[in-house]
């Protein structure tokens, strides 16, 4: 989970969180055990549909403002350490 969530947890943290999460999951098991046959999943509280925006350009940000927040930038782009592996 820590790898999927991309957090470099320490051993100490792993030891601490494991039982805490287990107790929460045990509580959550009430949900897993319920009979919900016939109830469709709700992703949104209200059934909105087709919320659309006209295809009209709006001003973009000033690139200097954008890059001012970057931990590292170079040649107008965000600089990151080397990338191992391709995007999935």
């Amino acid at each position: 989970m820590a790898r999927l969530a991309r957090i470099a947890l320490t051993e100490d943290e792993l030891d601490r969180y494991a039982p805490q999460l287990a107790s929460v999951l045990e509580h959550a098991a009430q949900v897993a055990a319920l009979d919900t046959a016939g109830a469709a999943p709700t992703a949104h509280p209200f059934p909105l549909r087709n919320v659309l925006r006209p295809d009209e350009p709006r001003p973009s940000l000033d690139p200097q403002v954008v890059l001012a927040e970057a931990p590292a930038a170079e040649e107008g782009r965000f600089r990151v350490p080397r990338i191992l592996g391709e995007a999935p």
């Binding site: 925006r53 295809d55 001003p59 890059l67 107008g76």
Partner: peptide, 30 residues
């Protein structure tokens, strides 16, 4: 509403939404 354009200077067609800035939200283009 950022322009869908090829070949612009880097990071000039960006805004809070397409940069994924905290708090921004998407609205679908018709």
């Amino acid at each position: 509403g950022c322009r869908n354009a090829f070949g612009s200077e880097p990071n000039t067609n960006v805004c809070p939404v397409c940069l994924g800035l905290p708090g921004s939200l998407p609205v679908l283009n018709e």
